[in-house]
Design a protein around this nucleic acid. Structure first.
Lengths: 75, 75
DNA sequence: AATATTGCGGACTTAAACGACCGCATTTTG
DNA sequence: CAAAATGCGGTCGTTTAAGTCCGCAATATT
């Protein structure tokens, strides 16, 4: 099964996002209700499948109650 | 002429980007050669016309020789 | 055991970012 | 003045994120 070539960047961002979400004890659906995002989309982001836009980064930060720049705080 | 409705977010991001670029004494074309971006695109971003993707943010940061998170350091 | 929650991924449409150009009016510089 | 640099905006085709909804397997809850 040809796994698609997700960029390291997306994968790193996703992993970082997931770590923050879990540290807040939020499920995908719980986070989704806190911002204007669908839980399936957040799942895809966490798995490095999307090259998110600025507006999405800010939405995620809103739902996580953190500063958007903290979402870029990864390797 | 119906000026398009660019989001505050994009405008803020663009203004911040421009400030950083100018503080480094770089022209649009100079910055463009330092990263994999077209100067016209950077212009559009600075003028709040684009909802940039994560990869673009990182490219800009690379060209500016700063941390990507610093690009989100605005109001 | 029955039910609910969770993570995940597929399907689909629409809007928009991307990428690569080009051209021009206005500075700046040689 | 002439030539270069600069900022900016437009076009066009291609790609893809966004948005929405559905369904399922696995785990957790009661």
């Amino acid at each position: 099964m040809p796994k698609k070539n997700y960029s390291d960047l997306q994968v790193s961002f996703g992993a970082h996002l997931q770590k923050i979400r879990l540290s807040k004890g939020l499920s995908l659906r719980a986070l989704a209700t806190r911002c204007d995002l669908d839980d399936s989309k957040i799942s895809k982001i966490e798995n490095g499948k999307l090259n998110v836009q600025l507006s999405t980064i800010v939405e995620l930060a809103k739902g996580l109650d953190i500063n958007p720049k903290d979402l870029l705080d990864f390797g």
